[in-house]
Design a protein around this nucleic acid. Structure first.
Length: 461
RNA sequence: UCCCCGGUAGCUCAGCUGGUAGAGCAUGCGGCUGUUAACCGCCUUGUCGUAGGUUCAAGUCCUACCCGGGGAGCCA
């Protein structure tokens, strides 16, 4: 395969023949020379192919090229006499590989993101979406690298599950039964015994419980895969299908988990910052001018750590009028989280020790019997980006909490078994991958940081 | 799901207190001795989201619905 534009632009010096294949971002035709801005998606920058009358098919083909055309250009790589680029390609030959009809919807001018979502098959060719997808890829790689460097094993958790074990939100049903005429049992209820899995089945809302199985055998595991929520959430921070990262660590308590979360974010930001310098500079210039300073903040500054109780005290002492009142025992609202991370501390913040009444049954109950070893990482602009906890590993306490919350103990038989057979303290967290990409790029809407967003009422493409 | 805002040309938008629709860009054509989201000239483009209603007259006012955006809840 030929060099990508990214590789050509990284050459130490000009010289030699190169071949560039890609799409035209724009074509500028002057009297005797055409400037073709070719990009191939390998980096933010394109390469300028310069074609004059000596170029093959100049009059009959090159002069008619326009935005969107797929081309192959062959010629010499030379130092550019013009401003704005180091090298350019003096084309000996330009070949039209694929033309465009004149209703090609992408212009060189800026489009609204709303419109671009309606042409999701073409939007990766825009500067912004191209940069998003490269940053997304770099972040994905950085996550895998981070965990593997620390001895984690990636666990492939199932996408289809039988029960809503965590109690986290509405689930999508998976079935092969005929929806218009399902088989019925004696009571007239739908007979899932005849369904594919012989039981009601759903798309996963979390790989956490499976990750706990992995951690209690392999010590350190993480899952990284698609997750589904059938909730009618219409916000710029929610998707019905999103990717979640869930590490789970044996012999780890809440402080160790907070350390892991902080190291994790710092490491991923550092690696993406190194790999995607141009893309992040683009986001800083065109999308949100706090992108680069945020990157630096996350990497350089230690995260603030406070308890839920301290958070409530700070909020109460702030003198700020909140829409939702602050009181010990109530969950922190978005406005509270944003005040703390954006205004009070001005940097990422780790909050631990939430009241047990507002958190899930599997979280480790602290000695005060009032709070659990839960942990949220809050960041400016996004709010909660990571949520996690030390897990309750004591069988008797876990059974009591399941009973307290009115959950059916028999459905958690294997989860309880893990507490009967060599139980150890363990902890883990979940990170919404798209929220991380949003945080890194400054993109306002989560639908623009995933190639094919699924939201209520829309799963096009 | 709730609250607020919006839907006008392919795109981005303007259109005041109702008087039969406009600009830039894109497309097409022509020009320009190297351009940088090039520039200059000419041309084309509309069931003004949908359905009703008020009025001599509705893009403009009213009602309902659909779609989108922002915020909230839920959460990741």
């Amino acid at each position: 395969m030929d060099e990508l534009i990214r590789e050509i632009l990284a050459r130490p010096e000009a010289g030699g023949e190169v071949t560039v294949r890609g799409w035209l971002r724009t074509a500028r035709h002057a009297k005797k020379v055409s400037f073709l801005e070719v990009f191939d998606g390998s980096c933010m920058a394109g390469i300028q192919a310069v074609a004059g009358p000596e170029c093959a098919r100049f009059e009959d083909e090159v002069r008619g090229l326009g935005t969107g055309c797929a081309v192959e250009a062959v010629g010499e790589l030379v130092d550019s006499p013009g401003q704005g680029q180091r090298f350019e390609l003096h084309a000996r030959e330009v070949r039209l590989v694929g033309g465009v009809d004149d209703d090609y919807p992408l212009q060189k001018k800026r489009h609204g993101f709303e419109f671009l979502r309606t042409i999701a098959h073409l939007r990766p060719r825009t500067n912004t979406l191209g940069a998003v997808l490269r940053v997304r890829d770099a972040a994905s790689r950085a996550i895998d690298d981070f965990f593997h460097e620390r001895g984690f094993v990636q666990l492939h958790s199932p996408v289809i599950t039988l029960s809503d074990a965590e109690g986290a939100g509405d689930m999508f049903r998976v079935s092969t039964l005929d929806p218009s005429n399902p088989p019925r049992d004696d009571q007239g209820a739908v007979d899932y015994k005849q369904d594919f899995f012989e039981a009601p089945s759903y798309l996963t809302v979390s790989g956490q419980l499976e990750a706990e199985i992995g951690a209690l055998a392999l010590s350190r595991v993480y899952t990284f895969g698609p997750t589904f929520r059938a909730e009618n959430s219409n916000t710029s921070r929610h998707l019905a299908e999103f990717w979640m990262v869930e590490p789970e660590v044996a012999f780890c308590e809440i402080e160790g988990l907070a350390d892991l979360a902080e190291d994790f974010l710092k490491s991923v930001f550092r690696q993406v910052g190194e790999k995607c310098e141009d893309d992040l500079a683009f986001f800083d210039a065109r999308i949100d001018d706090s992108v680069l300073s945020t990157l630096e903040h996350v990497i350089e500054q230690p995260f603030e750590r406070i308890t839920y109780t301290e958070a409530v005290e700070i909020l109460e002492a702030s003198g700020r009028k909140f829409e939702f009142p602050v009181s010990w025992g109530a969950d922190l609202q978005s406005e509270h989280e944003r005040f703390l991370t954006e205004e009070h501390f001005g940097k990422p913040l780790i909050v631990t020790g939430y009241p047990k009444g507002i958190k899930a049954f599997y979280m480790y109950c602290n000695d005060d019997d009032q709070t659990v070893a839960a942990m949220d990482v809050l960041v400016p602009r996004i709010g909660e980006i990571i949520g996690g906890s030390q897990r309750e590993h004591r069988l008797d306490v876990l059974k009591r909490r399941i009973a307290d919350q009115g959950l059916p103990e028999e459905e958690y038989w294997w989860y309880l078994d893990l507490r009967r057979f060599g139980s150890v303290p363990h902890a883990g967290f979940g990170l919404g991958f798209e929220r991380l990409v949003q945080f890194m790029t400054g993109m306002a809407n989560i639908r623009d940081v995933i190639p094919f967003p699924r939201v209520p009422g829309n799963a096009s493409f």
